[in-house]
Amino acid sequence: MATNSTNDSFGLANSTAFDWEPFYYADPPYRELQMVWLAACTVLGVCGNMALLITVSCVQELRTPGNALLCALACADIFQLVTKVPMAVVFLHYGEPLACDGVFFIIDTVYLTMAQFSINIIAPISIDRYWYICSPFKYSDTMTSARIALLIGLSFLLAMVTMVHPLLEGENNYFHPPYIICKYIPRAGSEE
């Protein structure tokens, strides 16, 4: 495990539970470059995904079941941007871990759920594209709005189950990073 001044300021130099090397990148000039990059990605990501949502909702010809899947993915991407990036910027600005309060934990849970949903929705999008390419004449009968809604719902339900299960797991939870960080940072700091 690498130790440096940033790790020492967190009281984690003697902790063997985690590799805290990524905290090094909150030092200047990397911090400022990351903040600019995050701001640019947020503006481009939110504007681009909002443009997709507005275009599909305003143009009648684009309101297809397949585009509903893309809109679901765009919504998940927006949620990821607005939940993760502000916390990352605050972390980079102050250069120290965020408080392990309920708000931090809820926001990060939303982010991780939407990240899982973004991964899950790729399968329905692939199925939709498969039917559109392989059976274009049967596509509208096969991929109905109800079936698309079911695929979106199942993808979201799977994402929620994936995130809730580790929270119920207790002491052996290694899947939910904020849960682990909030649980072990005070313990690592108190061992000195």
Rank of each mutant, 00 (worst) to 15 (best):
R147I: 09
F156W: 13
I122W: 11
Q116F: 14
I119L: 11
I121Y: 04
T113Y: 09
S126L: 14
N120T: 02
F117M: 10
A123W: 07
R147F: 03
F117N: 08
M114K: 03
M160E: 07
S155L: 05
E171Q: 06
S145Y: 14
V110I: 08
S140A: 15
N173M: 10
I122F: 13
E169L: 15
Y111N: 01
Y174E: 15
N120C: 00
E169G: 12
V110R: 06
I121G: 11
A149Y: 09
S155D: 06
V164R: 05
T109F: 12
P124E: 09
L158N: 11
R129Y: 15
I125R: 00
A146M: 03
V164Y: 09
L151V: 11
S145T: 13
I119N: 06
I148T: 13
S155N: 03
S126D: 13
L112G: 02
I125M: 07
F137C: 11
L158W: 11
D141C: 08
T113S: 09
I133F: 15
L112T: 07
P166C: 09
S155W: 04
P166A: 02
A159D: 03
Y111Q: 04
L167A: 05
M143F: 09
S155Q: 07
T142C: 11
S118L: 02
E169T: 14
A115V: 10
L154C: 11
E171S: 06
E171I: 03
G170E: 10
A123K: 00
I107G: 06
S155P: 00
A159Q: 03
R129E: 14
R147C: 02
R147S: 06
I119F: 08
R129C: 13
A115L: 13
Q116C: 14
D108M: 15
A149R: 09
E171Y: 08
